[in-house]
């Protein structure tokens, strides 16, 4: 399925969670996801837990800071 993290489209396995999408987002940017993972919000500004289910087209906002 496809989900959007920080305006980046991510193709991820069916049944993936918010945390899985964040890990994929970091990998796409050549980074290792930190532990704990950063908090995420949905398209409506609600906080979503990392083990929350994603559905096709879900949009997430994650505050990340990649090293230069």
């Amino acid at each position: 399925m496809k989900v959007i993290v920080n305006n980046t489209e991510i193709k991820i396995f069916q049944g993936a969670t918010v945390g899985d999408a964040i890990r994929t987002y970091y990998s796409l940017h050549g980074q290792r996801a930190p532990s704990p993972l950063p908090e995420a919000e949905d398209a409506y500004g609600n906080r979503v837990a990392h083990d929350g289910a994603l559905t096709e087209g879900s949009r997430l906002s994650v505050t990340v800071s990649f090293p230069d």
């Binding site: 399925m1 193709k11 991820i12 396995f13 069916q14 049944g15 993936a16 969670t17 945390g19 899985d20 999408a21 890990r23 994929t24 990998s27 796409l28 996801a33």
Partner: peptide, 20 residues
């Protein structure tokens, strides 16, 4: 496992699925 598949970036036809 889901950690590995979420972390790996590689081209494939099948995105995969969880067995829950």
């Amino acid at each position: 496992n889901s950690y590995v598949l979420a972390t790996a970036i590689f081209d494939r036809e099948d995105p995969g699925k969880t067995l829950s």
